[in-house]
Nucleic acid binder design. Structure first.
Length: 235
DNA sequence: ATCATCAGGCGCATTACCTCA
DNA sequence: GCTGAGGTAATGCGCCTGATG
């Protein structure tokens, strides 16, 4: 389609657009018509840069000076880029918020695990302190424990400890979480103590990286595989 | 082959003007 | 009618690139 250039491409405009390089107060700047804008927008959707030949063709078709078309595309690219930046910023901000909330929940989860490990460590040291069983264990550590049977601890007549743990979906794979609680046999306790002794200090920091290497890392990754899904923002 | 110069195009910041609440 | 904000066409400047001598 052809446009009547009379509205925009007048002698006055010629004196300003693309021909004169000096600013004038009388440049009679007019907005492009809706039809012209529509055509330019369509053009821009297919290609954000115009070939020189195409530019001439478009200018002729819309009744604009080629320089006006070039400037329109330049300004359009600038506006588009600015809009893109805004969108990118929004996406980044949303992703950051997701990460921040995930981090918070992971911190809480970690704190819960640390507390569990400390409880277990404390409970397992008790028999060792009292010297009731597993004498070989007592040589391992000096123990500064309490004598009461803390919450959730029961022992039967055969010397088995029964630790009723609060159920947690976050329990470590190394600890059974069946409904009746966790039973730890005195025999083989040394190995378990080795495991439990890896409990973190109260501040939640890991004692050393080597200690963590003895965990079943595959199991941990399996366990947390769902957690890592949020790295993929596109999904 | 290398260098200097020039023209044209682009990005970016800014200006000038128009429109509208 | 005046005014300020926002949108947009146009300008100015610096930079890059390709052509030419």
């Amino acid at each position: 389609m052809m446009f009547d250039g009379g509205d925009n491409y007048t002698q006055e405009m010629m004196s300003v657009t693309g021909i004169s390089t000096t600013k004038t107060k009388n440049n009679n700047k007019r907005r492009f018509s809706d039809e012209q804008i529509k055509s330019l927008e369509l053009m821009f959707e297919s290609e954000t840069r115009l070939e020189p030949g195409k530019k001439l063709e478009v200018a002729k078709e819309l009744g604009l000076h080629p320089r006006q078309v070039a400037i329109w595309f330049q300004n359009k690219r600038a506006r588009w880029k600015s809009k893109q930046l805004e969108q990118d910023y929004s996406i980044l901000q949303a992703n950051y918020n997701i990460l921040a909330s995930k981090l918070e929940s992971l911190k809480k989860e970690k704190q819960g695990l640390v507390i569990q490990l400390q409880k277990l460590n404390h409970l397992l040291k008790k028999p060792e302190e009292e010297g009731q069983c597993c004498e070989q264990v007592t040589s391992m550590n000096s123990i500064d424990g309490e004598s009461d049977q803390g919450e959730g601890v029961k022992s039967d007549s055969e010397g088995h400890l029964s630790l009723s743990m609060e159920r947690s979906e976050h329990a470590l794979g190394g600890v059974s979480d069946d409904d009746s609680g966790t039973k730890i046999d005195c025999f083989g306790l040394e190995e378990k103590l080795n495991f439990i002794s890896m409990a973190e200090p109260a501040d939640g920091s890991l004692t050393s990286s080597e200690e963590w290497q003895s965990f079943d890392s595959d199991a941990l990754f399996d366990r947390y595989s769902s957690v890592y899904e949020w790295w993929d923002f596109r999904s």
